Computed example of a mutant assay.
Amino acid sequence: MTEKWIDSLKSISDQGSVGACPFCGSTNTDYKCSVVIPENRNGYMDIWCNNCKKAFHVSRMQIPKNMKTEGEIPQGLEYYN
Protein backbone atom coordinates (compact mmCIF):
# COMPACT_ATOMS: atom_id res chain seq x y z
CA MET A 1 0.00 0.00 0.00
CA THR A 2 2.95 2.35 0.46
CA GLU A 3 3.06 3.07 -3.27
CA LYS A 4 -0.42 4.64 -3.05
CA TRP A 5 1.01 7.39 -0.86
CA ILE A 6 4.16 8.15 -2.91
CA ASP A 7 2.54 11.08 -4.77
CA SER A 8 1.33 12.52 -1.45
CA LEU A 9 4.84 12.31 0.03
CA LYS A 10 6.29 14.03 -3.07
CA SER A 11 3.61 16.73 -2.89
CA ILE A 12 4.39 17.46 0.77
CA SER A 13 8.08 17.68 -0.03
CA ASP A 14 7.64 19.87 -3.13
CA GLN A 15 4.60 21.99 -2.27
CA GLY A 16 3.98 21.64 1.47
CA SER A 17 0.55 20.06 0.99
CA VAL A 18 -0.70 16.49 0.65
CA GLY A 19 -2.65 16.90 -2.58
CA ALA A 20 -5.38 14.44 -3.54
CA CYS A 21 -6.16 11.37 -1.46
CA PRO A 22 -4.93 8.22 -3.23
CA PHE A 23 -8.12 6.39 -2.18
CA CYS A 24 -11.06 8.75 -2.74
CA GLY A 25 -9.47 11.62 -4.71
CA SER A 26 -10.53 14.30 -2.20
CA THR A 27 -8.23 17.28 -1.67
CA ASN A 28 -9.49 17.61 1.93
CA THR A 29 -6.22 16.12 3.18
CA ASP A 30 -3.63 17.07 5.77
CA TYR A 31 -0.46 15.95 7.53
CA LYS A 32 1.44 16.51 10.75
CA CYS A 33 5.04 15.82 11.71
CA SER A 34 5.78 15.02 15.34
CA VAL A 35 9.27 15.74 16.64
CA VAL A 36 10.28 13.15 19.25
CA ILE A 37 13.99 13.93 19.62
CA PRO A 38 14.40 17.73 19.38
CA GLU A 39 18.22 17.71 19.28
CA ASN A 40 18.25 16.30 15.75
CA ARG A 41 14.54 16.76 14.83
CA ASN A 42 13.86 13.02 14.59
CA GLY A 43 10.27 11.89 14.72
CA TYR A 44 7.40 10.68 12.54
CA MET A 45 4.70 11.92 10.17
CA ASP A 46 1.03 11.11 9.68
CA ILE A 47 -0.81 11.87 6.42
CA TRP A 48 -4.60 11.56 6.15
CA CYS A 49 -7.78 12.28 4.25
CA ASN A 50 -10.48 14.09 6.22
CA ASN A 51 -13.21 12.63 3.99
CA CYS A 52 -12.55 8.88 3.76
CA LYS A 53 -10.34 8.74 6.92
CA LYS A 54 -7.56 6.73 5.21
CA ALA A 55 -4.11 7.51 6.61
CA PHE A 56 -0.41 6.71 6.31
CA HIS A 57 2.29 6.74 8.99
CA VAL A 58 5.98 7.40 8.30
CA SER A 59 8.17 6.40 11.22
CA ARG A 60 11.75 7.32 12.08
CA MET A 61 12.39 10.33 9.92
CA GLN A 62 14.35 13.52 10.30
CA ILE A 63 11.87 16.36 10.07
CA PRO A 64 12.95 19.42 8.06
CA LYS A 65 12.21 22.78 9.70
CA ASN A 66 9.76 23.74 6.94
CA MET A 67 7.47 20.75 7.66
CA LYS A 68 4.20 21.28 9.55
CA THR A 69 4.38 20.27 13.22
CA GLU A 70 1.25 22.00 14.56
CA GLY A 71 -2.32 20.72 14.67
CA GLU A 72 -4.17 17.61 15.76
CA ILE A 73 -4.21 14.16 14.21
CA PRO A 74 -7.90 13.18 13.91
CA GLN A 75 -9.31 10.19 15.75
CA GLY A 76 -10.72 7.21 13.85
CA LEU A 77 -8.23 7.10 10.99
CA GLU A 78 -7.62 3.82 9.12
CA TYR A 79 -3.88 3.43 8.57
CA TYR A 80 -2.64 1.80 5.38
CA ASN A 81 1.09 1.17 5.25
Rank of each mutant, 00 (worst) to 15 (best):
E72R: 03
G25V: 11
I12V: 12
W5Y: 05
C52K: 11
D14K: 11
K54D: 02
W5K: 01
Y31P: 15
I12R: 07
H57W: 06
I6R: 13
Q15F: 11
K4T: 11
K32D: 07
N66M: 02
S26Y: 10
P74I: 06
G43D: 05
N50F: 08
S11H: 09
V58Q: 12
Q62I: 08
G25N: 14
T69Q: 12
K10P: 01
T69R: 12
T29F: 04
W48G: 10
P64W: 00
S34T: 14
I73G: 06
V35F: 01
M1T: 09
H57A: 09
C24V: 07
K54W: 00
S11C: 03
D30K: 08
I6W: 06
E39H: 03
H57N: 06
M45D: 10
Q15D: 07
M67S: 10
C52A: 13
K65N: 00
Q75Y: 00
G43C: 11
S26T: 15
K68P: 02
Q62Y: 04
C21R: 00
I37A: 03
A20E: 14
P74C: 09
S17C: 14
N40W: 04
N42C: 13
L9V: 15
D7H: 11
Y44P: 11
P74K: 05
W5A: 11
T2K: 13
C24G: 09
S26F: 14
V58G: 01
K4V: 08
I73R: 01
V58P: 00
N42T: 01
S17T: 14
I73C: 02
K68G: 08
E78K: 15
K54M: 13
K53Q: 14
S11M: 09
Q15G: 04
W48M: 08
G43K: 05
A20I: 04
D30M: 02
Q75C: 06
E78V: 12
C52L: 08
P74T: 07
